[in-house]
């Protein structure tokens, strides 16, 4: 690209940006709209869903179907990346990092796992949930590959296992949805399986179960993405 082209692009972009800024600043502030569903959620979500966390109540109960769509987007992205990057050759293992790093992570990894599980299961009480906890679980597989070498990861946590975990997470979510139909309600109805006092771990109906399903799905999905991306790198290393 030549210099004039650059200047032209910058000019157009800044013009568009200024137009956008001016038009957005001209918008009247109508957020306190009387019939807004915001009022309903803020006033009734604890009694209706049993979840202390408003965000979780919206994500996994009022709009659980959107979360199904969003986790499906990640599933689709995983499938696409595997489709484009998959190779028939088995990954060639690197030797991992030094002994000290290996020992340190040997001690740390169980706690990382525990933290991930904590974030997932306490989604209805504190910030977090299936998406966030799942990412932490997915990081364990990345630690395995980098610190201990990809062969270790392959043996402990093979692609087949990851696929099975991902599918079972997705099926748990959809299964909970269908339970709603079987129990006489609609798809993705809150089942009230856990109905202890609001604020305790065993509350909020089927929200914790949906969180677990999404957590497995996201964790395994991210691990699969990382796994299919490292294959090529290690092959090149050997070729050198």
């Amino acid at each position: 690209m030549s210099k004039t082209k650059h200047i032209f692009a910058v000019l157009i972009l800044s013009l568009l940006g200024i137009t956008l800024l001016v038009s957005l600043s001209k918008l009247p502030n109508q957020f306190e709209y009387a019939n807004s569903i915001y009022h309903h959620v803020v006033n009734n979500s604890i009694t209706e869903t049993g979840s202390l966390n408003f965000v979780t109540a919206i994500l996994y109960d009022y709009r659980a179907y959107d979360s199904l769509g969003e986790s499906t987007i990640i599933f689709g992205a995983v499938s696409g990346i595997v489709l484009l990057l998959s190779r028939k050759t088995l990954p060639v293992s690197s030797h991992g990092l030094s002994f000290i790093v290996k020992r340190t992570f040997g001690m740390l990894t169980p706690f990382i796992f525990l933290f991930g599980i904590y974030i997932i299961t306490h989604g209805h009480l504190s910030p977090g949930g299936g998406f966030q906890g799942g990412v932490i679980l997915g990081a364990i597989s990345i630690i395995f590959s980098i610190v201990y070498g990809s062969e270790f990861d392959y043996k402990r946590y093979s692609p087949t296992t990851k696929t099975l975990l991902e599918t079972s997470g997705a099926l748990l979510f959809i299964g909970l949805g269908f339970m709603g139909i079987l129990l006489g309600g609609n798809f993705l109805m809150n089942l009230n399986i856990l109905n202890a006092e609001v604020g305790s771990l065993l509350s909020a109906g089927s929200i914790p179960f949906i969180n677990i399903g999404i957590g497995f799905k996201i964790g395994a999905g991210l691990a699969i993405i990382f796994y299919s991306m490292i294959q090529k790198t290690f092959k090149e290393e050997v070729d050198l």
Binding site: H40, A64, G180, N186, F187, M189
Partner: peptide, 13 residues
């Protein structure tokens, strides 16, 4: 029509 999760509109989907 179908109300997902038993939420009547405009609350749910």
């Amino acid at each position: 029509k179908y109300y997902l999760g038993n939420w009547i509109p405009p609350i749910g989907i």
